[in-house]
């Protein structure tokens, strides 16, 4: 017998569905210089950096100034990203590209406020950027 079945848990999917968003994004609160992940070599030497390693963001609360650009760098093989729930940076949820090892993703914060973010496939990975 060869049943074309697949019983991945829809409940589990729903549990994580809250954390899914769509890629393309443009809003005033944040600007994304590059939708695609960039090699770590392209990160400026004086950049504000959040490293991602061992299933966590190394700066749970990062304080920056309005207009600053934050670079996230994935230091491990496990893919990670930066995602905001609905209402944090706009009416729609925002989901950044997945980063492989030694790839970076940057976001410029244009408005003061507190921006809590998470990793799409790893919702227990959370941190905040506080823009003053």
């Amino acid at each position: 017998m060869n049943f074309p079945t697949k019983s991945r848990s829809v409940l589990a999917a729903l549990m994580l569905a809250a954390f899914s968003g769509t890629g393309a994004f443009a809003a005033d609160t944040i600007t994304v210089p590059s939708e695609a992940a960039v090699p770590v070599a392209e990160v400026p030497a004086d950049a504000i950096i959040v490293n991602i390693e061992k299933m966590k963001y190394d700066q749970p609360e990062l304080k920056v100034k309005t207009g600053d650009t934050v670079y996230w760098i994935n230091k491990e093989v496990m893919p990670h990203n930066v995602a905001f729930k609905k209402g944090v940076v706009g009416d729609e949820p925002f989901k950044g590209e997945m980063l492989k090892k030694d790839q970076a993703y940057s976001i410029t914060f244009n408005e003061a406020g507190s921006y809590e973010y998470h990793c799409t496939p790893h919702p227990f990975m959370r941190a905040t950027v506080i823009v003053e």
């Binding site: 848990s9 589990a12 899914s20 496939p121």
Partner: peptide
């Protein structure tokens, strides 16, 4: 791997 990994 039971999760439907269709996110994104």
């Amino acid at each position: 791997n039971d999760i439907i990994w269709c996110f994104g």
